[in-house]
Simulated assay, not measured.
Amino acid sequence: MFNALLRISQIKSGVREKKFELIDISDVLSTIADIYVDVANDVNMTLSVVLPASPLYIQGDRELLIQQLANLVENSLRYCPKGSELFLVSKKEKEHVVIIMKDNGPGISEKERERVFECLYRINKVRNDGGIGIGLSLVKAVAELHKGEVKLYDCNPGLKVEICYPQM
């Protein structure tokens, strides 16, 4: 927990911007696929990662972008029931690179969607699932550091997380 809070503090201070380089977001998604496709299968879920036909470049910190997407996948793995289908997709929309993480789990109610980005906020505080309320705070902090935006949508059932970054 301490390391996660320290990382969020570093992100918000702008220190990590010094590590920015030109990154093909497809490489980041491929790394996530290499790590989590088998993990999802092990817990009777499916993770499908869809890469774009051509490279999509953003200026950023590769390590933080991997951590951001890992947090989203791990949240889906933690909160979705067995048999769930998870999708991670990247695409170009106008002048932006859009990353979408979508699942068919319980989702997040509309009234909770803004609060889940607060550090240490948990929807269900009595649940003992290993979550500590930092994952989505880090997701948002990484997006903001990269001049991006995070939005949450209801999938009926499930949650769709959309992250939009300026394309290089």
Rank of each mutant, 00 (worst) to 15 (best):
M1L: 07
R7H: 13
L69G: 05
P106K: 10
R62G: 05
M45C: 07
A141H: 00
L65A: 02
E93M: 13
D34T: 10
L152M: 03
T46G: 05
Q59F: 10
L77G: 08
Q68I: 03
I8K: 11
S76V: 04
K102V: 13
P52M: 02
E149S: 12
K94I: 12
L145V: 12
G105I: 10
F20Y: 01
G148T: 08
A4N: 14
L88S: 01
F87H: 12
E93R: 14
L64T: 06
V49H: 04
E95P: 09
L88K: 00
F87N: 13
S137M: 08
E144Y: 03
V150K: 00
P157M: 06
G83Y: 03
Y121N: 04
R113S: 05
I25T: 15
Y153W: 06
N41L: 01
Y153K: 08
V49K: 05
Y36K: 02
R113G: 03
T31D: 12
C155K: 11
Q10F: 12
E112P: 00
T46F: 05
N156V: 14
D34H: 10
I58R: 02
Y36T: 01
V15K: 14
E118Y: 08
S54K: 13
E85F: 12
E110D: 13
E110V: 10
V73Y: 06
N128F: 11
M45S: 05
K94V: 11
I25V: 15
N156G: 13
G148Q: 07
G133I: 01
R16H: 08
D34S: 13
I100V: 15
L51Q: 05
I108G: 03
L65W: 00
I32T: 14
I134C: 06
S9T: 15
G83Q: 05
L138W: 10
L64S: 06
